[in-house]
């Protein structure tokens, strides 16, 4: 009880950080994922390389690369920007795969109708393809959001204060790693179960 009283304020603050970091990464990831998906479908080599790299290299290594290699190249970003940026770029690679899968489910006829009626490719993408595939992509998007919440724990390694980092600090200051990490894990679980619940709830409402 005493532990909780001491731990909760800092942990809740860190929870907020984890949530906004994840939300930003998912939002940027989706926004970047759309053009990457389009480029992948069009067989662009850079897009396929992008997806292959960000899905092939452990996120931990990507974060270290941004942390060490960017300054080496003369790019000096605040650590939080580098970390959230890397998380977003990585998310975009997974999003591109999800979006590409969703696009494959859009019937060709609907796109032909759009073309005949004179919609531009961009209009067709935004007004027809994305909305039609959104419903089918929703479960995968929620899974990806959960993966990002979990992956955001890795940015503790480059010194960003979020849930995991906060738990580490708590563990070393209280000499009680077990409750510290258990609390940390429980908070992640609550965030992710909430996401799952929201996904199911909204999906159910739409079906009705």
């Amino acid at each position: 009880m005493e532990f909780l009283a001491e731990a909760l304020p800092s942990m809740l603050e860190a929870t907020a950080a984890t949530i906004w970091i994840s939300a930003v990464a998912v939002a940027i990831g989706f926004a970047l994922g759309v053009p990457i998906a389009v480029a992948c479908s069009a067989g662009r080599v850079w897009a396929n390389l992008y997806v292959s790299f960000f899905r092939g290299v452990p996120l931990l290594i990507q974060l270290l690369l941004a942390y060490y290699a960017l300054p080496f190249l003369g790019v000096d970003l605040p650590a939080i920007v580098a970390a959230v940026g890397t998380l977003s770029l990585c998310c975009a690679a997974y999003m591109a795969e999800i979006i590409r899968g969703g696009f494959a489910l859009v019937p060709k006829g609907g796109l032909e109708a759009a073309r005949l009626l004179g919609l531009t490719p961009l209009q067709t993408l935004l007004r027809i393809r994305l909305p039609i595939s959104a419903q089918a992509m929703r479960p995968a998007l929620i899974s990806e959001a959960i993966l990002i919440v979990k992956a955001s724990s890795l940015i503790s390694v480059v010194g960003i204060l979020e849930l995991t980092r906060s738990a580490q600090a708590l563990a070393s200051s209280t000499f009680e790693p077990l409750p510290a990490y258990a609390l940390c894990g429980a908070i992640y679980l609550v965030i992710n179960l909430t996401l799952t619940f929201l996904a199911q709830g909204r999906g159910g409402a739409q079906r009705a």
Binding site: A113, G118, P131
Partner: peptide, 29 residues
């Protein structure tokens, strides 16, 4: 050319856009 408005086509499988209402389907273009 497709989309220049000269030719309209009605397809065997309708090809309506499922996320839009009938009115929105007609109004979008």
């Amino acid at each position: 050319q497709p989309g220049d408005g000269a030719v309209g086509m009605v397809f065997q499988h309708f090809n309506l856009w499922p996320h839009l209402t009938a009115r929105e389907n007609v109004a979008l273009a």
